[in-house]
Design a protein around this nucleic acid. Sequence first.
DNA 1: ACCTCATATTGACAATCGTCTATATATAAT
DNA 2: ATTATATATAGACGATTGTCAATATGAGGT
Lengths: 94, 94
Amino acid sequence: MNSIDYAVIFKALGDSHRLQIVKMLSEGEKCACCILEFFEITQPTLSHHMKILCESGLVETRKEGKWSHYSLNHEILEELKNFINSIDSGGKHE
Amino acid sequence: MNSIDYAVIFKALGDSHRLQIVKMLSEGEKCACCILEFFEITQPTLSHHMKILCESGLVETRKEGKWSHYSLNHEILEELKNFINSIDSGGKHE
DNA sequence: ACCTCATATTGACAATCGTCTATATATAAT
DNA sequence: ATTATATATAGACGATTGTCAATATGAGGT
């Protein structure tokens, strides 16, 4: 497996819509139409945001008939938490 | 005090140069020229990156004579950690 | 076969980004 | 005052971004 590109994940989180989507997915799996209702953006725009989140690795898709169900990739999220928690606390303290 | 805009912080971290700068600052305070040596970018470009990091709130400047000393804002970093750690683990689990 | 619904893709647009060169500012040393 | 050093700002450039309208894909239902 190739290593995680954290800058790409942070870039994915660096948009308020996408950040809110991740917070929504934190409650559990959600389909695209359900997420779309929440925002005042068009369907193609949401699709674009979901693509960026998926490509970062933080979000996964599960297809079921017509629906796309999105959920957080817990493994990647855990790695991300470890990464952030290692900043500063990993360094020397006075 | 006004609330933290996490998307802005993530956007600041969403560039590989800036992410590496933050990792460097994790070791402790550093002056601009010291950081500059590490990268193959021009001085104005570094200055621009530092500005973005400072404006996000994650990094602070301390002026001393000709030098600018940069360091992590531990309070904001702690808030950021809390925020990320609250994602997913705050939701319901099966 | 046709229609409807859920989602993805394409192509366009203005706005923002990362980078550079050139220049400005500010501090310290001579 | 002049010079050297550290950093910031201004302006320009191509690349990327977030958004939309229009269209395509694909899966059911009739």
